[in-house]
Amino acid sequence: MATADPGEADPLSLRGVVPPTVTAFDEEESVDYDRTAAHARFVVDRGVHAVFPLGTNGEFPLLTQQERGRVVERVVEAVDGDVPVIAGVGAPSTYQTVAHAEHAESVGADGVVVVTPFYYPLDETGAIEHYRRVANAVSVPVYVYHIPSRTGNALSHDTLTELVEIDNVVGLKDSSKDVPWLVQTIDAHPELTYLSGSDSLLYTGLAVGCSGMVSAVANVFPELVVELYEAYTGGERKRARELQGTVFSVRNALKSGGGYMAGVKTALSFRDFDAGPLRSPLRRMDETERAELRERLEALDLI
């Protein structure tokens, strides 16, 4: 089965590798906007197909509204139209989400990614009304970000059926890791664009009908994930499967100490890109963890 084309409802026709780019900080944990923008340029220059600032890897829940707005502005400037910028605008409240979405559109983001509201339990009526209000507030395409392990709010198939009727809702980034749920959703709503949201399921996502993938590994090694995508779409399935194995190994190494995002920023430093620390309470890797990560990435011949 070939990777699916983007959904006909999606004016951006998103496909390929979409890194959830990092937010860089200085040693005092203030946002380093120059380095944040430079990281977006780092992955674009290495062949990715779009960028997604202010996703989980962008530490969006730890930023102020003003910081989030400035990150989107600088990333849009840095990318300069070379690939689409789909900005994360999610927040616990619809009010905040709408404000983020309106600002992202005003500074030139090509689309917005709306994570399911988190902290408070959300019923079907609340979810539908949330996405309707966001979509009605902007004219750029809206992509639903489904990550129930982080939000505590899963979307049912019945809810998705209602969401796809909303103008501007054009795609879904699925980080549920629930492959049967994803397959059933793709079958029911082929007009949407689907992006696989887990590095453990890049190959699988393409095989079941996703047109692209949001990959944290691609924040550090965009060339690796682009090669996987191009091998798959070029019919070299055996090579793509081998590369998925390498991505598994990188993913496991990045998660070996301090959490996935600590691994991402540490590994970037091995590629001479300093994204600084994470914002507390997240922490960077200690020296022992750094040394172990370097050893594992050297064994994979990636640094």
Rank of each mutant, 00 (worst) to 15 (best):
E236F: 08
A262C: 05
R279D: 04
R150S: 10
W181V: 06
E102T: 04
A50P: 08
E102G: 02
G171Y: 03
H103R: 09
R271F: 03
H189D: 03
S256R: 05
Y120T: 09
S30H: 15
D123R: 07
D199R: 03
W181F: 15
V114Q: 05
F248I: 00
D158L: 05
K177G: 00
G258Q: 04
P92R: 11
E59F: 03
P92Y: 04
E29V: 08
L62N: 05
A109V: 06
V76P: 04
G152M: 11
G209P: 10
Q96T: 14
T3E: 14
T97I: 06
K265I: 05
V112Y: 00
T116I: 13
F270I: 01
T159C: 14
R283E: 13
V31G: 01
A135V: 00
D174W: 11
A216N: 14
V114K: 07
E27S: 14
G111I: 07
Y119D: 02
T125K: 12
T246L: 13
F118W: 15
V164M: 12
L300S: 10
V17H: 10
V17R: 09
V114D: 02
P92T: 13
T97V: 10
S198F: 05
S215V: 07
A275F: 04
C210V: 02
Y120M: 09
V115S: 10
T56P: 01
G108W: 07
A101G: 09
Y203I: 02
T23H: 09
P11L: 13
L122T: 05
P148T: 02
A104Q: 04
V107P: 05
R74K: 14
T64M: 02
L293S: 05
T64H: 02
P61Y: 05
V264G: 01
P11Y: 11
T56S: 15
P222V: 09
T125L: 00
D199W: 10
D178E: 09
T97P: 02
G263L: 04
L300F: 11
A2F: 14
A4Q: 14
S196A: 14
V114Y: 06
Y260I: 08
G259Q: 03
D158R: 15
H49F: 02
Y120G: 00
V44R: 07
I147C: 01
